[in-house]
Amino acid sequence: MSGDGTPVIEFRDVGLTYPGPPAVHALHPCDLSIAGGDFVTVVGPSGSGKSTLLNIAGLLDTPTHGRYLLDGIDTTALSASHLAALRGRRIGFVFQAFHLLPHRSAQENVELAMVYQAVPRRLRRLRAAAVLDRVGLGHRAAALPTQLSGGERQRVAIARALVAEPSLLLCDEPTGNLDSATAASVLALLDELHRDGMTIVVITHDAEVARHGQRTVTIRDGVLSDPARHRGEL
């Protein structure tokens, strides 16, 4: 994460329009700045453009308008392979559907995040074990996803997102598939990571989840509204 005051995420007039006809403005050009260590929640109804925002921030999609700087790096002109490298090293993803490989153990699922970084196998094992310990699943390292509860699966997914030591943790409805008690424990883990200095962006339509963020950005019909910007804080 950025320790020199450079925002981790900086949107400069970033927008995404799918060419038609008719053209669809998935995200209207907007500015957004998220500093290192921030915990930001993005809220909005279904189809409002939350996922588009997350995809652009996660370098999974490319904006058709404006420039996006991640950790100060202008990603606009980067090649697909450089974007993949940035994605792997600087961004950790947590998905609503967990996206764990069903035939791999928790440990192997976490290790997968380091496979494309050419981290030596032995180091991968050590780091994966350490991160699983950190999320409280050290004792479940050998379990298959089918042997884990929903909350445990999401913790494995969070461990996988953290193991490459990213600057940014992007969470897409991380508690969407969990009951309230399990969701609370996952949110507590995110709070703990935030306290340790991790930059976290959580996309949600759950007001309870949104309250965990320091700052909430709303989005509706592709139009981003950042109260902090309106207040002139940024």
């Binding site: 700087l69 100060g72 790096i73 792997g88 496979v115 050419a118």
Partner: peptide, 18 residues
């Protein structure tokens, strides 16, 4: 803006891992 700052090459997949 620091174009290309800290982009340490591309992702790699070792043959053994493949």
């Amino acid at each position: 803006m620091r174009q290309g700052r800290s982009i340490r090459g591309r992702s790699r997949l070792a043959l053994r891992d493949l």
